[in-house]
Amino acid sequence: MNYFVSFCLCVPALLVTALASADDAQFAQRRAEMVALIEDDVRRTAQYTGLGRFDKRVMDVMADVPRHRFVPVDRADAAYENRPLPIGYGQTISQPYIVALMTELLGVTEGDVVLEIGTGSGYQAAVLAALVSRVYSIEIIEPLQRQAGLRLADLGYHNVTTRLADGYYGWAEHAPFDAIAVTAAASHVPPPLIAQLRPGGRMVIPVGGRFTVQQLLLIEKNADGSLVTRQVLPVRFVPLTGEH
């Protein structure tokens, strides 16, 4: 009898797992296509971003993180299209190309500790989590922070810690950070964040509208604490005709 009950319980579970695997396989295929698309974009923008190709680790992670789990359920089909999507509360999940570009510009390595300002759906944090030792992520919209925290834990990104707080002050207890990703530009770069950046560290901030990134601001802190900022245009575009 017990065997029978177990069997009865197992069949639906197995069915669900099988369906989920089929689903995952389908998404994995689309993820691979998305990565191919990004690689193509990278090649085409190489001359302007100064990046001939993205780090293989970054692209591998992009091919691995299930983006469809970070978008609203009714948007899952569009998750692997190379475009930003709304996630509620007037916020968006960035375009995959921009996520990859930001991650690449941060230049993170395995032992790094990274701070993210603006968790959103948690996708950027998940991408970073697979590349570094620890990610601290701050969100100011309470429901987004709660959902992202649960989602990241559910997906096994245990090296990400989120909290509901004012990103302006960074996260002093865990500072300094090797890299800081700010997912939406404010009117200015918060001085506490610059203070919490380790010498040799990098900060990246996308500037522009919610659905269109105009430029990426890359701030590098030299060993002596001085700052260099680079303004990276994410697009292969020279404003004068006849120049390439």
């Binding site: 190379n82 375009q95 190309y97 659905f211 105009q214 994410p234 697009v235």
Partner: peptide, 18 residues
């Protein structure tokens, strides 16, 4: 007008913002 085809073609690579 001259810039439009170029920007539309690169819409997904950051051209949309321009």
């Amino acid at each position: 007008w001259r810039a439009l085809p170029e920007l539309l073609a690169m819409r997904e690579q950051g051209g949309a913002a321009l």
